[in-house]
Amino acid sequence: MTTDALPPPELATDPGAGVEAAVARTLDLAVTWLGWDGTPRVSDGGDRIYTPHKVIRRQADHLLDHLAEVEAVLAGVPTQPDRWHASLVTTHADFARFTEVDLEEARERLTRLARTFRLRLLAAGEAEWDRPREGWTLREVAEHLSSSWYAEQVGDMRRPR
């Protein structure tokens, strides 16, 4: 199936489209990270730092976490407890130089995860998207993932901050 075969990216009729759009925005920004000088970006509160690799890792983890949540909800079983350290932790690997190969790998990983999420929602069907549940509806999960927040923390490295 090609992307062209999917419904138009209107969130009312395809809530997963926003997830793919957020990943596309992340990857657009990631192109500007190839010349990263190794200086992390500090959050507004000063309690978290962000690097290109950390953004890609967190975006993938975030997609995977919520994909697992959606699968558990649809299967009628409890979701796995969230034990991620999330963006509080910055690993040594997060400080590695961000190369074209890293960008290519990120593109493959993130676009596949976002597409899998979108296709899962489409397969679940419209009747499931807004069904009341304990916690968020499937549409609310998709809306939550329809942001490139992590990537925006690093931003466009062609522009000074």
Rank of each mutant, 00 (worst) to 15 (best):
E143H: 13
A127F: 06
R109K: 14
E140D: 08
T137H: 03
L67R: 10
A127C: 04
R115K: 13
L67T: 14
G46D: 09
R109E: 11
H92Q: 11
E104G: 13
L74D: 04
I56N: 00
A68S: 12
K54A: 06
E108I: 12
T51E: 03
T99Q: 02
R83V: 10
L113T: 01
V141D: 00
V70W: 00
A142I: 03
D82Q: 04
S146H: 03
T116P: 07
H66S: 01
A68G: 13
L67Q: 09
L119Q: 13
L110A: 03
T90N: 07
L138F: 05
D102P: 03
R83M: 07
W136I: 11
P132T: 08
E126Y: 04
R58I: 07
D82I: 05
A127W: 10
L113W: 00
H144G: 06
D94E: 07
A127L: 10
I49F: 10
V77I: 13
E126L: 11
S87I: 08
R97G: 02
R120M: 15
R139M: 06
E128M: 14
L74P: 01
E128A: 14
L113F: 01
R58W: 01
G45K: 13
L110I: 05
H66G: 03
D82C: 07
R115V: 04
G125S: 10
G46W: 10
G46A: 07
D61P: 02
E69T: 13
V141I: 15
E108P: 05
A124W: 02
H144K: 13
L110W: 00
T51D: 06
Q59T: 15
L122N: 08
H66Y: 10
V73T: 09
L103Q: 05
G135Q: 11
A72Q: 08
A68T: 05
R107G: 04
V77P: 02
R57G: 01
A142G: 06
A68Q: 12
R133C: 05
S147A: 15
A60Q: 02
Q80E: 14
R57C: 01
R57L: 04
A123T: 08
L74H: 05
E71C: 03
K54C: 12
L110M: 04
W136N: 10
L145G: 00
D65W: 15
A75K: 12
A124Y: 01
